[in-house]
Amino acid sequence: MIKKFTFIFFTFILLCFCENGRIIYKGEGIFSFEELTVEMWIKFNFDPNEKTDKVWIPKGSILNFEIPEEKTIFSISCGLKAGRKGEEDSRCYLRIGFCIEGKEIPYPVLIDCSNFSNNWHHIAILWQEGKKLTIYIDGNEILKSSLQEKIKKDFVGKSKLIIGTPLVWFYENQIEIDEIRISSIARKKEELSIYKNIIDPYVLFYENFENIKEENGEIFTEPYIVSIESKGKYKIENGKIVEGKFGKGYLFSK
């Protein structure tokens, strides 16, 4: 019993401080809860057909936008979830969640991605009018819905965008990512970056991991950021630069 406890304890400590990757960008001016498109290419480094009988097993954290002072978070992650019949019904989901001023918006959006192969997939999350959500996977509309509550329409001040693992995360982050683009409008289908990959005046943030530099043993990236005060290089904490969808990409786990 003591041995088991010790093993769990140290695994816990290890995982807390394990070398999951992240990049923390300044978020000022690059997010609006009125209208937005968030796109990226992701690849699972785990088997999405893996089963569980648990309510939720996180497998990867992809992106978090946080306004710490207001306890507001928007997050995209993925994991495994048991269904009504337990392990038999277990599926792999992409989870899009909102926590506004400390309160979680009920019913985070879950997109079944059990049929994802271990190849690159394009994800696009659009919303409009503060509550209408549309999700595309590989250019196909998968979900169109409305959140129960309208998220406050606001251009946020002090905030951060975390690509990869949040500061507190107890699991291995088994995702590779590339071509992250955030736009200030809800893109039409034909304008999604799966079809058209350009910087235009609607792009607020674009990270393709092509602008990588090494300095004093640390690795930095310099994305396209619309906010003039946020331009510059950002440290890549842990993880690994790998072959991405186009050119280089980023694997969150070592």
């Binding site: 910087i199 235009d200 005046p201």
Partner: peptide
Amino acid sequence: ENSSVRIPFL
């Protein structure tokens, strides 16, 4: 060209 800049003054 064909891009945007935002200036947050906070």
